[in-house]
Amino acid sequence: MKKTKLGRNRERIETIVYPVMFGILIMVLWQTGLLHKLLHTDDYILPYPDKIINIITDNSDKIMVNVWASVEVALCGLLLGSVIGYLIAIIASAFPTYGAGGLTIVSAFNAIPIVALAPVIINWTKDVSTVAEERSMVAKILVVTVTSMAAMSVNAYRGLTELPQFSDDLMKTYAAGRLTEFVKLRLPNSLPYIFTALRVSVPGSVIGALVSEYFAEYIIGVGRQIRENILIAQYATAWAYIIVACLIGILMYVLLMIVEAIFLRKRR
């Protein structure tokens, strides 16, 4: 028993150490310019890490303003999209005859590229508010909502319908009502599926937020800064924002992993 525990610990350490080592290797290659040779690029398009880090530290205040703007959009959209997605799944599982078809339509939304969706939604939401900052915010949140809705509804539907046979049978032998069955069986059964959905939609929400900023009327956000700086040929600054965008995505994913570990602890 002890041996397996030790083995598992070692495995855990390895899953952290190897990626970190790989990251360090990339950074070394990058800083020494070997990466540029490998990728056939110059230090203008791909500036050295120390320069990028300098820009991040020099502009930390301005960067944080943009980070919060993007994070706010990603989180609000994620929350809204996940809640709506879950509700759709509940409705679909309650009416299985139409449910599966309805879900196909929802997941079809997911196939629309964000770059096509964002301008349309921004046009729709023009009357939401006379203040550009507010209507842009609503538009961006709606883009993220649409993109994170599909993953949740499809996965939650599976969680709500693909029940263990014995549990289903047990409910039937107890002659449980639909509500009891829903609360005691379907809902808990869908929990792991919710996290499966979030694993897809959390990174997706960050991308959705960044891309929708490209088209928003009110100019703010990490995505917009990346585009602005690339177009005026400020690659080092653009990279600073790209690194920040990566950090947002990674941090949100790590947070999700922690929450998942807490919620699903008993199931392992």
Partner: peptide
């Protein structure tokens, strides 16, 4: 309904500016 709630929320966060 949720979109409207979000709109109100967005409005709050940018209160002073608006």
């Amino acid at each position: 309904a949720l979109a409207m709630a979000a709109a109100a929320f967005g409005g709050c966060s940018s209160g002073s500016g608006s």
